[in-house]
Write a protein that binds this DNA or RNA. Structure first.
Lengths: 140, 140
DNA sequence: TTCCTAAATAAGAATAATTGCAAATAAGAT
DNA sequence: ATCTTATTTGCAATTATTCTTATTTAGGAA
């Protein structure tokens, strides 16, 4: 996600509203992979009157326009990710931590593998790895 | 998951209760990757008095004992999977369909790749692919 | 077999996350 | 400046799940 939020919105055919800009801004200010709740809290620091439903609404819209994406979690709380660059996720077995994992070499291997080996009745659009394990030498 | 439910339970140190057996049985009778709600409905066909909380309880226990596992979904509804054999998932962009994807060759490639290329501060325990795309020639 | 105890279940209230709805507001095209 | 439609608001409502307390039960021990 680049940083001219107004342009990002209008280029996707969305109206530029203060609420939408505030949600986009919030992604730079909270931890990576925030929950809706964390985004709401962050937005309300500067814009206390934004309605909860509005933010859920905006998040849905941004996902639909592929400006952000959802992160699948093992538990039920939905998280969002403003990094649209292709990457994978490291999931910690011992905490709720999720880290980004970039690996161009891996992406090539997968792309190559699936371009040669088609899956029956399925056209692949994207592949994401869920790498599950433990962080070593790390405080949460 | 083999099919002697009583053995599966006691080998994991769990008491063999009619409720637990009914939950395990239900996996053979509902669609793959059922939601908790679908399991509850299936169980209640024969055992109408099983409490909702009990089934959530049992599902948690079975996941903990690795008898079943959770399937991460893009939306927030949790699904379960009684296939413990290593496999990946195909996610449909156009419906809620999730299909299993087995690929030994792919598993070897990944295993080999990650055994040579360690990730900083992270020890990998399992790798799952989320393959997102569209089913072709298929009715939902 | 009967008894005992920890584990499991029932019942239903409570919570947390998310969605729905009707009315009010505001962005941006004309 | 006006108009039209998308967007936001303010809750209420829903959904999925968890919690709590009392009751029941499985399986080991006597």
């Amino acid at each position: 996600m680049s940083h001219n939020f107004r342009d990002i919105l209008s280029e996707s055919g969305l109206k530029v509203t203060p609420q939408r800009v505030a949600v986009l801004e919030s992604f730079d200010l909270v931890q990576k992979h925030p929950t809706a709740e964390q985004i709401i809290a962050q937005v309300r620091l500067k814009n206390p009157d934004v309605a909860t439903g509005t933010i859920y609404n905006i998040l849905d819209t941004l996902v639909e326009k592929k400006i952000i994406c959802r992160v699948k979690t093992d538990r039920d709380i939905m998280r969002y990710d403003s990094t649209t660059e292709k990457h994978h996720h490291l999931y910690c077995l011992e905490s709720e931590t999720i880290a980004d994992y970039y690996d161009e070499e891996l992406n090539s291997i997968l792309e190559n593998y699936f371009s040669n080996k088609a899956i029956d009745n399925f056209s692949v659009e994207d592949i994401k790895l869920q790498i599950v394990g433990r962080f070593t030498n790390r405080n949460y």
